[in-house]
Simulated assay, not measured.
Amino acid sequence: MRTKAFNGLEIKLVRTVPVEQLQALYQDAGWWQDDYKITDDFLHRIPENSALFAGAFLEKKLIGMGRALSDLCSDAYIQDVVVLSAHQKRGIGALIVTFLIQELKKRGVDWIGLIGEPGTREFYEKLGFRPMENYIPFKLE
């Protein structure tokens, strides 16, 4: 599925993206440092192995993304929602998340969660997400 947003912006599910554009998104978000070099194979596997990978394209350039990790039948986690800083504050991130939610629901996924970074609570609450009271996120160290 594809959605036309505005001024040539297109959000669509993809399995491949230009690796240099994908790396630029992670670096722009501050998740990877400029000197953090990742192999092309690693970068190819991110969209290929995600249950769903939504790219936001402006004039065929990847300017934003979000992905879902899921079994595509009951549960899903939305992860890595990012828009290049030069294109933020235009509603693109909300379009990406909404697009992923719609695609997951079309597939019957009825539990969708995520872990937001500090400062993103209001953004996700506007999209219908609520903190999970009495639950604690964990990460293996």
Results as ranks from 00 to 15, higher is better:
Leu62Asp: 11
Ile63Cys: 11
Gly64Lys: 05
Leu100Ser: 07
Gly116Ser: 15
Asp28Ser: 12
Met132Asp: 01
Gln23Cys: 09
Gln21Ser: 15
Arg67Thr: 07
Lys37Trp: 13
Cys73Val: 05
Asp71Pro: 10
Phe129Ala: 03
Pro118Val: 11
Arg130Trp: 00
Leu95Phe: 03
Leu84Cys: 07
Glu122Pro: 00
Arg67Val: 04
Leu25Pro: 07
Pro118Ala: 11
Gln21His: 14
Glu125Leu: 01
Glu20Gly: 01
Ile46Tyr: 12
Leu52His: 10
Leu95Tyr: 06
Asp35Leu: 03
Phe123Asn: 03
Phe42Tyr: 13
Arg45Ser: 15
Ser85Tyr: 10
Leu9Ser: 03
Lys12Tyr: 05
His44Tyr: 13
Gln23Thr: 14
Gly55Pro: 11
Gly128Met: 07
Phe99Trp: 12
Tyr36Thr: 14
Phe129Met: 04
Gly64Val: 01
Phe123Met: 01
Leu13Ala: 09
Cys73Met: 03
Glu117Leu: 14
Leu84His: 15
Ala29Gly: 10
Ser50Cys: 10
Tyr36Cys: 06
Ile115Ser: 11
Ala68Gly: 05
Tyr26His: 08
Glu10Trp: 01
Met132Ser: 13
Ile63Leu: 07
Lys60Tyr: 05
Glu10Ile: 15
Arg90Met: 11
Gly91Lys: 01
Glu103Gly: 06
Tyr124Ile: 05
Asp41Asn: 11
Arg45Phe: 00
Ser70Arg: 04
Glu122Ser: 09
Ile96Gln: 01
Arg67His: 07
Gly55Val: 10
Ala94Thr: 03
Gly93His: 04
Ser85Thr: 15
Ser74Thr: 14
Leu13Pro: 07
Gly119Asn: 05
Gly93Tyr: 02
Gln23Met: 11
Gln102Glu: 12
Leu25Glu: 05
Gly93Asn: 04
Val97Met: 01
Thr16Gln: 12
Leu62Lys: 08
Cys73His: 06
Arg107Gly: 00
Ala68Thr: 05
Asp35Ile: 02
Ala54Ile: 04
Glu59Cys: 02
Val82Ser: 04
Leu52Tyr: 09
Ala86Phe: 10
Gly113Val: 02
Val83Glu: 00
Asp110Ser: 15
Arg90Leu: 13
Asn49Met: 11
Glu59Asp: 15
Leu22Lys: 06
Ser50Ala: 15
Ala54Gly: 09
Ala29Tyr: 09
Tyr26Ile: 03
Glu48His: 12
Leu69Tyr: 04
Lys126Ser: 13
Leu69Thr: 08
Ser50Phe: 12
Val19Cys: 15
Gly30Asn: 07
Arg121Asp: 13
Asp34Ala: 14
Pro131Met: 03
Asp110Trp: 10
Glu125Cys: 03
Pro118Leu: 06
Thr16Asp: 07
Lys12Met: 06
Asp71Ala: 13
Gln23Ala: 14
Met132Glu: 09
Ala54Asp: 02
Glu122Gly: 01
Gly66Gln: 03
Val19Trp: 09
Leu84Asn: 12
Ile46Asp: 07
Asp41Ala: 13
Ser85Phe: 09
Leu25Asp: 03
Cys73Thr: 08
Trp31Cys: 02
Val109Gly: 00
Asp41Lys: 12
Lys126Cys: 06
Gly119Gln: 06
Asn134Ala: 14
Pro18Asp: 12
Lys60Thr: 14
Glu59Pro: 00
Glu125Lys: 02
Arg45Asp: 12
Glu48Tyr: 08
Glu103Leu: 02
Glu10Met: 04
